[in-house]
Protein backbone atom coordinates (compact mmCIF):
# COMPACT_ATOMS: atom_id res chain seq x y z
CA UNK A 1 0.00 0.00 0.00
CA UNK A 2 2.79 2.40 0.99
CA UNK A 3 4.61 1.38 -2.17
CA UNK A 4 1.57 2.09 -4.34
CA UNK A 5 1.17 5.50 -2.67
CA UNK A 6 4.81 6.34 -3.34
CA UNK A 7 4.46 5.18 -6.95
CA UNK A 8 1.41 7.40 -7.50
CA UNK A 9 3.27 10.36 -6.01
CA UNK A 10 6.19 9.72 -8.35
CA UNK A 11 3.77 9.73 -11.30
CA UNK A 12 2.36 13.07 -10.14
CA UNK A 13 5.87 14.42 -9.76
CA UNK A 14 6.71 13.27 -13.30
CA UNK A 15 3.44 14.79 -14.52
CA UNK A 16 4.52 18.23 -13.37
CA UNK A 17 7.94 17.82 -14.98
CA UNK A 18 6.50 16.66 -18.29
CA UNK A 19 3.74 19.29 -18.22
CA UNK A 20 6.01 22.30 -17.64
CA UNK A 21 7.00 22.93 -21.28
CA UNK A 22 3.40 22.23 -22.31
CA UNK A 23 2.11 24.83 -19.85
CA UNK A 24 4.56 27.48 -21.03
CA UNK A 25 3.81 26.82 -24.70
CA UNK A 26 0.06 26.67 -24.12
CA UNK A 27 0.21 30.12 -22.47
CA UNK A 28 2.30 31.33 -25.41
CA UNK A 29 -0.33 30.01 -27.77
CA UNK A 30 -3.10 31.70 -25.79
CA UNK A 31 -1.41 35.12 -26.02
CA UNK A 32 -0.82 34.77 -29.74
CA UNK A 33 -4.15 33.24 -30.74
CA UNK A 34 -6.31 35.41 -28.49
CA UNK A 35 -4.79 38.34 -30.42
CA UNK A 36 -5.81 36.64 -33.67
CA UNK A 37 -2.50 35.13 -34.80
CA UNK A 38 -2.43 31.34 -35.25
CA UNK A 39 0.75 29.96 -33.75
CA UNK A 40 1.62 26.45 -34.87
CA UNK A 41 5.28 27.45 -34.58
CA UNK A 42 5.31 26.77 -30.82
CA UNK A 43 7.21 23.60 -31.64
CA UNK A 44 9.84 25.29 -33.77
CA UNK A 45 10.42 28.21 -31.42
CA UNK A 46 10.80 25.83 -28.50
CA UNK A 47 13.30 23.74 -30.48
CA UNK A 48 15.33 26.78 -31.53
CA UNK A 49 15.44 28.18 -28.02
CA UNK A 50 16.33 24.79 -26.53
CA UNK A 51 19.27 24.73 -28.90
CA UNK A 52 20.27 28.32 -28.14
CA UNK A 53 20.10 27.71 -24.39
CA UNK A 54 22.13 24.50 -24.52
CA UNK A 55 24.76 26.09 -26.77
CA UNK A 56 25.25 29.09 -24.48
CA UNK A 57 25.25 26.87 -21.40
CA UNK A 58 27.86 24.61 -23.00
CA UNK A 59 30.07 27.52 -24.03
CA UNK A 60 29.76 29.78 -20.99
CA UNK A 61 28.32 27.58 -18.25
CA UNK A 62 25.85 30.23 -17.15
CA UNK A 63 22.22 29.07 -16.87
CA UNK A 64 20.69 32.53 -16.64
CA UNK A 65 22.59 33.71 -19.70
CA UNK A 66 21.36 30.55 -21.43
CA UNK A 67 17.77 31.35 -20.46
CA UNK A 68 18.05 34.93 -21.73
CA UNK A 69 19.54 33.77 -25.03
CA UNK A 70 16.75 31.23 -25.41
CA UNK A 71 14.14 33.91 -24.87
CA UNK A 72 15.80 36.30 -27.32
CA UNK A 73 16.10 33.55 -29.96
CA UNK A 74 12.46 32.63 -29.62
CA UNK A 75 11.42 36.29 -29.76
CA UNK A 76 13.44 36.74 -32.94
CA UNK A 77 11.46 34.01 -34.66
CA UNK A 78 8.23 35.43 -33.22
CA UNK A 79 9.18 38.66 -34.95
CA UNK A 80 9.69 36.74 -38.18
CA UNK A 81 6.24 35.17 -37.75
CA UNK A 82 4.81 38.62 -37.10
CA UNK A 83 6.65 40.11 -40.06
CA UNK A 84 5.20 37.46 -42.38
CA UNK A 85 1.69 37.26 -40.96
CA UNK A 86 1.02 40.76 -39.56
CA UNK A 87 3.06 43.09 -41.75
CA UNK A 88 2.89 41.11 -44.98
CA UNK A 89 -0.48 39.49 -44.19
CA UNK A 90 0.87 36.10 -45.23
CA UNK A 91 -0.85 32.85 -44.35
CA UNK A 92 -0.26 32.31 -40.62
CA UNK A 93 -0.32 28.52 -40.83
CA UNK A 94 2.25 28.48 -43.62
CA UNK A 95 4.48 30.90 -41.75
CA UNK A 96 4.34 28.75 -38.64
CA UNK A 97 5.04 25.60 -40.62
CA UNK A 98 8.02 27.27 -42.29
CA UNK A 99 9.46 28.17 -38.89
CA UNK A 100 8.99 24.60 -37.63
CA UNK A 101 10.79 23.07 -40.61
CA UNK A 102 13.46 25.78 -40.55
CA UNK A 103 13.99 25.05 -36.85
CA UNK A 104 14.58 21.33 -37.49
CA UNK A 105 17.16 22.04 -40.17
CA UNK A 106 18.80 25.05 -38.55
CA UNK A 107 19.36 23.51 -35.11
CA UNK A 108 21.06 20.40 -36.54
CA UNK A 109 23.09 22.38 -39.07
CA UNK A 110 24.33 24.93 -36.52
CA UNK A 111 24.78 22.21 -33.89
CA UNK A 112 27.14 20.26 -36.15
CA UNK A 113 28.99 23.41 -37.15
CA UNK A 114 29.46 24.51 -33.52
CA UNK A 115 30.09 21.26 -31.67
CA UNK A 116 30.65 18.53 -34.31
CA UNK A 117 28.67 15.98 -32.30
CA UNK A 118 26.06 15.00 -34.87
CA UNK A 119 23.71 17.85 -33.95
CA UNK A 120 23.89 17.45 -30.19
CA UNK A 121 25.43 19.86 -27.73
CA UNK A 122 27.96 18.63 -25.16
CA UNK A 123 26.63 17.17 -21.94
CA UNK A 124 25.99 19.98 -19.47
CA UNK A 125 27.41 19.90 -15.96
CA UNK A 126 25.26 20.76 -12.95
CA UNK A 127 26.68 24.31 -12.71
CA UNK A 128 25.55 25.07 -16.26
CA UNK A 129 21.96 24.02 -15.55
CA UNK A 130 19.00 24.98 -13.43
CA UNK A 131 19.20 22.53 -10.57
CA UNK A 132 16.32 21.13 -8.58
CA UNK A 133 15.35 23.19 -5.55
CA UNK A 134 14.64 21.21 -2.40
CA UNK A 135 12.12 23.20 -0.41
CA UNK A 136 12.77 23.79 3.30
CA UNK A 137 11.99 20.88 5.67
CA UNK A 138 11.30 18.52 2.71
CA UNK A 139 13.38 15.74 4.23
CA UNK A 140 11.93 16.01 7.72
CA UNK A 141 8.40 16.33 6.28
CA UNK A 142 8.77 12.89 4.75
CA UNK A 143 7.98 11.42 8.18
CA UNK A 144 4.49 12.98 8.18
CA UNK A 145 2.05 10.66 6.42
CA UNK A 146 0.19 11.80 3.27
CA UNK A 147 0.71 15.58 3.41
CA UNK A 148 4.37 15.26 4.29
CA UNK A 149 5.11 12.75 1.54
CA UNK A 150 3.21 14.84 -1.00
CA UNK A 151 5.28 17.85 0.05
CA UNK A 152 8.57 15.97 -0.19
CA UNK A 153 7.90 14.00 -3.39
CA UNK A 154 5.61 16.15 -5.53
CA UNK A 155 5.98 19.78 -4.44
CA UNK A 156 9.62 19.89 -3.47
CA UNK A 157 12.53 19.13 -5.76
CA UNK A 158 11.62 21.07 -8.89
CA UNK A 159 13.79 23.56 -10.71
CA UNK A 160 13.08 27.27 -10.95
CA UNK A 161 11.49 27.04 -14.41
CA UNK A 162 8.73 24.71 -13.19
CA UNK A 163 7.66 27.40 -10.77
CA UNK A 164 8.01 30.01 -13.49
CA UNK A 165 5.61 27.99 -15.66
CA UNK A 166 2.98 27.90 -12.93
CA UNK A 167 3.51 31.62 -12.33
CA UNK A 168 3.03 32.18 -16.07
CA UNK A 169 -0.50 30.79 -15.82
CA UNK A 170 -1.44 33.27 -13.10
CA UNK A 171 0.19 36.15 -14.97
CA UNK A 172 -1.52 35.17 -18.24
CA UNK A 173 -4.90 35.10 -16.49
CA UNK A 174 -4.28 38.44 -14.83
CA UNK A 175 -2.99 40.19 -17.96
CA UNK A 176 -5.75 38.86 -20.22
CA UNK A 177 -8.72 39.49 -17.93
CA UNK A 178 -7.65 42.22 -15.49
CA UNK A 179 -5.71 44.75 -17.57
CA UNK A 180 -6.72 47.09 -20.35
CA UNK A 181 -3.90 45.64 -22.44
CA UNK A 182 -5.52 42.21 -22.08
CA UNK A 183 -8.90 43.58 -23.08
CA UNK A 184 -7.41 45.16 -26.19
CA UNK A 185 -5.49 41.99 -26.97
CA UNK A 186 -8.63 39.87 -26.77
CA UNK A 187 -10.53 42.43 -28.83
CA UNK A 188 -7.80 42.31 -31.50
CA UNK A 189 -8.53 38.61 -31.83
CA UNK A 190 -12.31 38.88 -31.77
CA UNK A 191 -13.18 42.18 -33.46
CA UNK A 192 -10.09 44.03 -34.62
CA UNK A 193 -12.25 46.79 -36.17
CA UNK A 194 -13.41 47.68 -32.67
CA UNK A 195 -9.83 48.08 -31.46
CA UNK A 196 -9.06 50.20 -34.49
CA UNK A 197 -12.14 52.38 -33.92
CA UNK A 198 -10.97 52.98 -30.35
CA UNK A 199 -7.80 54.45 -31.80
CA UNK A 200 -5.53 51.58 -30.80
CA UNK A 201 -3.23 49.97 -33.35
CA UNK A 202 -4.17 46.35 -34.10
CA UNK A 203 -0.76 45.74 -35.66
CA UNK A 204 1.02 46.96 -32.53
CA UNK A 205 -1.06 44.78 -30.20
CA UNK A 206 -0.59 41.72 -32.37
CA UNK A 207 3.17 42.25 -32.45
CA UNK A 208 3.19 42.59 -28.66
CA UNK A 209 1.18 39.37 -28.36
CA UNK A 210 3.47 37.31 -30.57
CA UNK A 211 6.52 38.68 -28.76
CA UNK A 212 5.09 37.63 -25.38
CA UNK A 213 4.44 34.21 -26.94
CA UNK A 214 8.10 34.22 -27.95
CA UNK A 215 9.22 34.86 -24.38
CA UNK A 216 7.16 31.95 -23.07
CA UNK A 217 8.29 29.50 -25.79
CA UNK A 218 11.86 30.56 -25.04
CA UNK A 219 11.49 29.62 -21.37
CA UNK A 220 9.97 26.29 -22.45
CA UNK A 221 12.93 25.59 -24.72
CA UNK A 222 15.44 26.46 -22.01
CA UNK A 223 13.58 24.17 -19.63
CA UNK A 224 14.00 21.23 -22.03
CA UNK A 225 17.72 21.59 -22.59
CA UNK A 226 19.22 23.25 -19.49
CA UNK A 227 16.81 22.36 -16.69
CA UNK A 228 14.91 19.11 -17.33
CA UNK A 229 17.56 17.78 -19.69
CA UNK A 230 21.31 18.26 -19.75
CA UNK A 231 21.98 19.35 -23.28
CA UNK A 232 20.34 19.61 -26.67
CA UNK A 233 19.42 16.51 -28.65
CA UNK A 234 18.17 16.78 -32.25
CA UNK A 235 14.38 17.03 -32.52
CA UNK A 236 14.19 17.06 -28.72
CA UNK A 237 10.80 18.81 -28.64
CA UNK A 238 9.32 15.66 -30.27
CA UNK A 239 5.86 17.09 -30.88
CA UNK A 240 5.48 18.79 -27.48
CA UNK A 241 4.64 22.06 -29.20
CA UNK A 242 1.73 20.39 -30.95
CA UNK A 243 0.53 18.76 -27.71
CA UNK A 244 0.61 22.23 -26.15
CA UNK A 245 -1.43 23.49 -29.08
CA UNK A 246 -3.91 20.69 -28.45
CA UNK A 247 -3.98 21.56 -24.73
CA UNK A 248 -4.65 25.19 -25.54
CA UNK A 249 -7.62 24.21 -27.71
CA UNK A 250 -8.74 21.71 -25.11
CA UNK A 251 -8.66 24.55 -22.58
CA UNK A 252 -10.84 26.70 -24.83
CA UNK A 253 -8.03 29.27 -25.24
CA UNK A 254 -8.28 30.07 -21.49
CA UNK A 255 -5.30 29.93 -19.09
CA UNK A 256 -6.70 27.88 -16.22
CA UNK A 257 -8.52 25.20 -18.26
CA UNK A 258 -5.44 25.02 -20.51
CA UNK A 259 -3.31 24.42 -17.41
CA UNK A 260 -5.52 21.47 -16.47
CA UNK A 261 -5.37 20.13 -20.03
CA UNK A 262 -1.56 20.33 -19.91
CA UNK A 263 -1.51 18.51 -16.58
CA UNK A 264 -3.86 15.86 -17.96
CA UNK A 265 -1.74 15.35 -21.09
CA UNK A 266 1.38 15.35 -18.93
CA UNK A 267 -0.22 12.76 -16.67
CA UNK A 268 -1.00 10.53 -19.68
CA UNK A 269 2.64 10.71 -20.75
CA UNK A 270 3.92 10.02 -17.24
CA UNK A 271 1.59 7.07 -16.76
CA UNK A 272 2.44 5.66 -20.22
CA UNK A 273 6.12 5.71 -19.27
CA UNK A 274 5.33 3.82 -16.04
CA UNK A 275 3.11 1.26 -17.79
CA UNK A 276 5.65 0.43 -20.50
CA UNK A 277 5.82 -3.35 -20.68
CA UNK A 278 3.28 -3.92 -17.90
CA UNK A 279 0.93 -6.80 -18.72
CA UNK A 280 -2.66 -7.19 -17.64
CA UNK A 281 -3.58 -10.83 -17.15
CA UNK A 282 -5.86 -11.98 -19.96
CA UNK A 283 -5.43 -8.80 -22.04
CA UNK A 284 -1.70 -8.72 -22.69
CA UNK A 285 0.55 -5.68 -22.70
CA UNK A 286 -1.01 -2.28 -22.19
CA UNK A 287 -0.79 -0.40 -25.52
CA UNK A 288 1.22 2.56 -24.22
CA UNK A 289 1.66 3.89 -27.77
CA UNK A 290 -2.07 4.38 -27.94
CA UNK A 291 -2.16 6.08 -24.52
CA UNK A 292 0.39 8.55 -25.90
CA UNK A 293 -1.97 9.30 -28.79
CA UNK A 294 -4.86 10.10 -26.44
CA UNK A 295 -4.17 13.88 -26.26
CA UNK A 296 -4.57 14.08 -30.04
CA UNK A 297 -7.64 11.84 -30.11
CA UNK A 298 -9.31 13.77 -27.29
CA UNK A 299 -8.60 17.09 -29.02
CA UNK A 300 -10.15 15.83 -32.26
CA UNK A 301 -13.23 14.65 -30.36
CA UNK A 302 -13.52 17.98 -28.55
CA UNK A 303 -13.08 20.00 -31.74
CA UNK A 304 -15.81 17.95 -33.35
CA UNK A 305 -18.14 19.06 -30.60
CA UNK A 306 -18.81 15.63 -29.17
CA UNK A 307 -17.72 16.71 -25.67
CA UNK A 308 -18.61 20.38 -25.37
CA UNK A 309 -17.48 22.82 -28.01
CA UNK A 310 -14.24 24.71 -28.47
CA UNK A 311 -14.83 28.03 -30.20
CA UNK A 312 -11.70 29.78 -31.42
CA UNK A 313 -11.30 33.57 -31.26
CA UNK A 314 -13.51 35.25 -33.87
CA UNK A 315 -10.87 36.91 -36.04
CA UNK A 316 -8.23 34.19 -35.77
CA UNK A 317 -6.09 33.65 -38.81
CA UNK A 318 -7.26 36.80 -40.55
CA UNK A 319 -4.88 39.62 -41.35
CA UNK A 320 -6.31 42.98 -40.37
CA UNK A 321 -6.66 45.49 -43.16
CA UNK A 322 -7.26 49.00 -41.93
CA UNK A 323 -10.15 50.74 -43.61
CA UNK A 324 -9.39 53.83 -45.58
Amino acid sequence: MAELWLQSLLVLDATLRVATPLILCAMAGIFSERAGIIDIALEGKMLLSAFAAASVAALYGAPFLALSTAILTSMLFSLLHGFASITHRGNQVISGLAINILASGLTITLGIALFAQGGQTPYLTAQARFSDITLPFAESARAIPIIGTIYAEVISGHNLLVWLALLAVAVTGFVLYRTSFGLRLRAAGEKPEAVDTAGVSVVRIRYQAVLIAGVLCGIAGAYLSVAHGAGFVREMTAGKGYIALAAMIFGHWRPLPALFACLMFGFLEAIAARLQGVEIIGLGAIPTDLILALPYVLTVILLAGFIGRATPPGAIGQAYIKER
Binding site: L80, F83, A84, S85, H88, R89, G90, N91, Q92, I94, S95, L97, A98, I99, N100, I101, L102, A103, S104, G105, L106, I108, T109, I112, A113, A116, G119
Partner: peptide
Protein backbone atom coordinates in the same frame (compact mmCIF):
# COMPACT_ATOMS: atom_id res chain seq x y z
CA UNK B 1 31.88 18.22 -46.19
CA UNK B 2 32.79 17.96 -42.54
CA UNK B 3 30.82 20.88 -41.11
CA UNK B 4 27.53 20.60 -42.99
CA UNK B 5 25.15 17.71 -43.56
CA UNK B 6 22.02 16.85 -45.48
CA UNK B 7 19.89 18.44 -42.74
CA UNK B 8 20.83 21.69 -44.42
CA UNK B 9 18.25 20.75 -47.05
CA UNK B 10 15.58 20.87 -44.34
CA UNK B 11 16.70 24.41 -43.57
CA UNK B 12 16.46 25.37 -47.25
CA UNK B 13 13.02 23.78 -47.37
CA UNK B 14 11.87 25.90 -44.42
CA UNK B 15 13.20 29.02 -46.12
CA UNK B 16 11.43 28.14 -49.37
CA UNK B 17 8.11 27.68 -47.55
CA UNK B 18 8.70 31.01 -45.83
CA UNK B 19 9.54 32.99 -48.95
CA UNK B 20 7.21 31.38 -51.47
CA UNK B 21 4.41 30.84 -48.97
CA UNK B 22 4.11 33.23 -46.07
CA UNK B 23 6.13 36.05 -47.63
CA UNK B 24 4.93 35.39 -51.19
CA UNK B 25 3.90 38.98 -51.74
CA UNK B 26 6.88 40.66 -50.08
Amino acid sequence: FQTITREMVLMIQGLIILFSGALALM
